[in-house]
Amino acid sequence: MVTANTELAYNGKIEGDVIVSRSDAVINWIRSNSMWPMPMGLACCAIELMAVAASRFDIARFGAEVMRFSPRQSDVMIVSGTVTYKMASSVRRIYDQMPAPKWVIAMGACASSGGMYRSYAVLQGVDRILPVDVYVSGCPPRPEALLDALMKLQAKVRREPSTRNLLKA
């Protein structure tokens, strides 16, 4: 007689010490839950970025509390603030120093599009010098909005063909 399998998850008594899963699922699970930010704090949005990291909003709940000021130890650059032409080269240089895989969140209107600063000194969107994964609207965005952006980025990372990319590299 065949009985229906009522085990919903991994059971060590049946499978032993082996877990079978797709490598993409495992890699993406690891990557998406330990995204270390590179806080590119440029202007006002950086204050909201600090608020996200602080006690009330607590970005640690999403595995992204390890703010690394060294680009070489970070995964996601959060460009928070106005990117001026004078600063643009430094932003790009820091992005280049981040190891792959790497992602970018453009936090706020200025980083996304120049925002209210339509002027001679301001780069009209950080996407002109580096690729952006998630844009967050707001001037500045509320902390919840940044957390939402992080969750959206995690969802994006979970869909990536990581194994194929790794083997291709």
Partner: peptide, 11 residues
């Protein structure tokens, strides 16, 4: 300084 010069006075 000037890395955050956004042109406020001109604006």
């Amino acid at each position: 300084v000037g890395y955050l010069h956004r042109g406020d006075e001109k604006i």
